[in-house]
Amino acid sequence: MLATLDTLDAERFLSREARLLDTADYRAWLDLTTDDVVYWVPVNDAGASPDDHLSIVYDDRRRLETRIWRILESGLNHAQDPRSSTLRFVTNVEVEPAEAAAEVLVRCNVLLYEYRAGAQRRNVTPNAHPASCEYRLRNVDGAWKIAYKKITLLALDGLLPTMTYLI
């Protein structure tokens, strides 16, 4: 079947995804991904191969599940004690056809804020992480799922603080 997704539907999808991430409903977020999902946050150079060059995150489904377990359930995510709140704004959404018939390419910009509330240390300013995102969404039995997500941070080659939440 030929997959079509208009910009408004894509925006709805991305807004829902952002809400699941910002509410740390990571299991529900994982349900939005395909079994062969690739979730990639490059560092230094967005054009470098993740097999040859360090990445911030380069996860398949199994690694994502481990990451989510570590963040939510291990009780050992010390860099997130107390946990950060995040808030992300999604804009500049564009939809293009993809090579695979059941898929579409979606591009957008994201402005991610991260703030650690409730800590003794008084961090007054939220960290801001502007980024551009590239998705391949796949229509699986009538539902759109994330088959590929690449997040290119504006400051990917600059000083980056720790980010042990889902970016």
Partner: peptide, 14 residues
């Protein structure tokens, strides 16, 4: 290591 790793971020927190 890396900003989202399971080791170094905890070190920097300490």
């Amino acid at each position: 290591a890396g900003p989202s790793g399971n080791g170094s971020p905890d070190d920097f927190e300490m």
